[in-house]
């Protein structure tokens, strides 16, 4: 029972880790990305269509590229046309959802669903681990392991490389960064591509990793949960991944408890409530700090 829940928690966590890392990178560059959900949806559809050609690797690349371009275009709107990032993100979600349905109708004559023959599913990795470890860790798809490998990689890039340093600098102060010759706009656009690409992979995991088909509700709002995770993680990759894991566990537990009288809809709102609570606590702490400073001066 516990091992099953943990196994499915890791499954639920995978798309969240991918998308929230993307959101984290974009946010480090200075943009709050509300469009992760739409890019995930796009990645899910593209992956399924390409995987039907028989190669899951091609499907992953295609999902990452297409959603990456969406993220890049979104960033262009924000950096070059100074559009509000939140509105653009929400608009992108609506537009992509529309485009996906439009395409399904135009190309397949179907409304909202797509089932294709010969879909090449993501391969699963079996680990010869004993007992409960094997039950939890064995049998996950490659993308799960890639997602977790990306966590230390992201942390390393952000803190230890020139690129990460510049990204953080541009995210904190575009004016000061531009003054010493960096290109904050290009940085944000590049980060937007990465955010899109990672969300696209998250979508691909849902369509060709978990279920093997596509429907328009496949993301289940996970793009917004990812938003909650990177808000919660405050730009720290490990903390963000830990939040994603927490939300993944919620998800797994909630699926288990469904039909046993537990209010699934309420459990699903927990991540969102937590974001509000965290923001409230941060705000209270900031005020206490300011008051403390005032008191020590007085």
């Amino acid at each position: 029972m516990i091992t099953e829940i943990l196994f499915s928690a890791l499954v639920m966590t995978t798309p969240l880790v991918l998308a929230s890392l993307g959101g984290l990178i974009h946010r480090s560059s200075g943009i709050v990305n509300v469009g992760l959900d739409g890019m995930m949806l796009l990645g899910a559809l593209v992956a399924l269509i390409l995987a039907s050609g028989g190669n899951w690797a091609v499907a992953l690349v295609g999902a990452a590229l297409s959603a990456g371009v969406a993220g890049w275009l979104m960033s262009l709107g924000i950096t070059r046309l100074s559009a509000n990032e939140i509105i653009v993100g929400l608009g992108l979600n609506i537009a992509i959802a529309g485009a996906v349905r439009f395409y399904l109708k135009a190309a397949y004559g179907s409304s909202g669903n797509l089932r294709l023959p010969d879909v090449s599913r993501l391969p699963k990795i079996d680990l010869p681990l004993p007992g409960p470890f094997g039950a939890v860790l064995s049998g996950h798809s490659v993308l799960t392991w890639i997602a977790w490998a990306l966590v230390p990689l992201t942390a390393w890039v952000l803190t230890r490389t020139a690129l990460g340093l510049r990204l953080r600098a541009c995210g904190t102060s575009a004016v000061s960064s531009a003054a010493i010759g960096l290109h904050p706009k290009r940085m944000r656009e590049g980060a937007g591509f990465v955010a899109g690409a990672l969300s696209g992979l998250a979508g691909a995991y849902l369509s060709i990793g978990v279920v093997g088909l596509f429907n328009e509700g496949i993301t289940g709002g996970r793009g917004f949960i990812a938003l909650a995770a990177f808000y919660f993680g405050a730009n720290r990759p490990w903390a963000t991944a830990a939040c994603a894991l927490l939300f993944g566990i919620f998800d797994a537990v909630q699926i288990r408890l469904q039909g046993r009288g537990f209010p699934a809809e309420l459990i699903q709102t927990l991540p969102y409530i937590m974001v509000c609570v965290v923001l409230l606590l941060l705000g209270l702490a900031a005020r206490r700090r300011a008051e403390g400073k005032a008191a020590s001066h007085g």
């Binding site: 559009a83 653009v88 992108l92 609506i94 537009a95 529309g98 485009a99 004559g109």
Partner: peptide, 23 residues
């Protein structure tokens, strides 16, 4: 009709994006 009328959703989302854009 068989017109993919989901075009309406695309238009809505895009209008949202371009309404806030500064040209």
């Amino acid at each position: 009709s068989d017109v993919p009328i989901e075009i309406v959703n695309i238009l809505q989302g895009l209008i949202m994006i371009f309404a806030v854009a500064d040209f």
